[in-house]
């Protein structure tokens, strides 16, 4: 096994032994269960409510795990000084960053799979049709989580955990609003405002592109080309951020 694999598996093992993770997954299960109760309160669209809430719960918990484990991935190693013995081994800093990222992605993949399984069982129990569109939505949620993890990891290579969390959360929110902001700014007369929004638009990830939960809940499929393009976009964005994280980490003193 290569160095990336060793680091990744260790990061995965660390997550598995962290009780917070189990609590979050349990919380996701509760949220999915809650969707059934809320659906009972609505007059119509029971099925849509259950699917909507389930997807939202998967997305929310996935992003929370990505941010809060992502920001501590590198920082914790430096603060606890565990990095000293790792970096004293024949492993490059780039491999360390990639290993850490892969470890968290593996953790998120397993968590997402568990949450998806709970979601599907809930749908089956309440006779909600399991549409292909739901899987498409989960696929793009996973891509979004890849991007968010990369953002968190990027910030954690040069800032504190708290600042990394704030910045990642900020980018996440802006990432869902860039398209809206741009259309609002288009009506503005201020050139500065337009330029600023344009910069944000091109700099921040367009996370709305990865959000198809609304249509997926009612069974509307997106074109396979869109799914592929959106996934590719997310992965390229994450790749660029990871490269940035590696570059910053190369220059750091411990």
């Amino acid at each position: 096994m290569g160095a990336i694999g060793v680091i990744a598996l260790n990061a995965f093992r660390e997550s598995l032994r962290d009780k917070i993770l189990y609590n979050l997954v349990l919380f996701a299960g509760l949220l999915i269960g809650l969707s059934v109760l809320l659906a009972d309160l609505t007059i119509t669209e029971h099925h849509k409510m259950i699917a909507d809430m389930g997807l939202a719960a998967i997305n929310l918990i996935g992003v929370i795990i990505a941010i809060f484990i992502g920001i501590s991935l590198v920082n914790k190693e430096i603060e606890r000084r565990t990095i000293y013995t790792i970096m004293a081994r024949p492993i490059s800093r780039t491999f360390f960053i990639l290993g850490k990222y892969c470890g968290l992605v593996l953790t998120l993949f397993v968590n997402l799979s568990i949450m998806l399984a709970v979601f599907l069982v809930t749908l089956w129990l309440y006779h909600v049709p399991i549409a292909l569109s739901l899987f498409q939505a989960v696929q793009l949620i996973f891509v979004e989580i890849l991007v968010v993890t990369a953002i968190a990891l990027f910030f954690s290579t040069f800032s504190s955990s708290t600042l990394s969390a704030i910045l990642t959360l900020g980018i996440y929110v802006i990432g869902h609003l860039t398209a809206d902001l741009r259309s609002i700014a288009a009506n503005s007369e201020s050139g500065v405002m337009k330029t600023m929004v344009d910069v944000l638009y091109y700099l921040c990830p367009n996370l709305e592109m990865l959000n198809i939960k609304g249509q997926a809940a009612v069974g509307i499929l997106v074109a396979p080309e869109y799914l592929m393009l959106a996934s590719l976009y997310g992965m390229v964005y994450a790749g660029v951020l990871l490269s940035g994280a590696c570059l910053v980490f190369q220059q750091r003193d411990f």
């Binding site: 260790n10 093992r13 660390e14 032994r17 962290d18 606890r80 000084r81 565990t82 000293y84 013995t85 004293a88 081994r89 024949p90 492993i91 490059s92």
Partner: peptide, 21 residues
């Protein structure tokens, strides 16, 4: 040099390790 570290052992001061292992 990364490859040279294959031939070096290091113990830091007041070491902190992965305590879950």
């Amino acid at each position: 040099d990364v490859e040279t570290r294959r031939r070096i052992g290091f113990l830091p001061e007041s070491p902190y390790f992965y305590d879950y292992l």
